[in-house]
Amino acid sequence: MQDILSTFVRSIFIDNMIFAYFLGMCSFLAVSKNVKTAMGLGIAVVFVLAATLPLNYLLEVYVLKQGALVWLSPEFANVDLSFLGFILFIAVVASFVQLVEMVVEKFSPSLYASLGIFLPLIAVNCAILGGALFMQQKAFPNLGVATVYGLGSGIGWMLAIVGMAAIREKLQYSDIPKPLKGLGIAFILTALMGIGFMSFSGIKI
């Protein structure tokens, strides 16, 4: 239980996808111009991360890891398929995103209208694949922790993009040196927010 709670808090604040690893920066910078769309993309990322991470975890534990295929037959104890990880993870993410898009379009047109345009973007969001690769590296003990890690990372990402969008909305009224306008100042802001988030790094649960 404690494991789950500490993974959750760590993944939101300390190992924040954006401020600690810069994952998903492209869509973070492109879509953080107003709070409403940022929120939409944030929710989509939380959903996809929380759903694909357990899938990829199962794939890792029952197919890819060395000796993972023992449940098929004991002869496979030495088979190590982890080099196939990249292809399988990205295939899971891309097909899941496609699936979600179709389901949402069929059953909830209003949600599709607000979320729809962001869904295809998410397949190539580094934060999703990054989550899967970190999961492989950290070797979580069970499915629950992996799911919570996905959920927490997604929430951390959403927190970052919504905060950024709120600041950028206010920024329109400030006087910025011309060459820094747009991309330049966005970088500096992200850095300052990152330094702010570093103050969480002492927290231990």
């Binding site: 401020f19 600690a20 690893y21 810069f22 820094l180 330049g184 100042i185 970088f187 500096i188 992200t190 850095a191 300052l192 990152g194 330094i195 570093m198």
Partner: peptide, 11 residues
């Protein structure tokens, strides 16, 4: 060496 400075250098 800390991550945020990479952003400042790019900026």
């Amino acid at each position: 060496i800390l991550p945020p400075m990479a952003l400042i250098v790019v900026a």
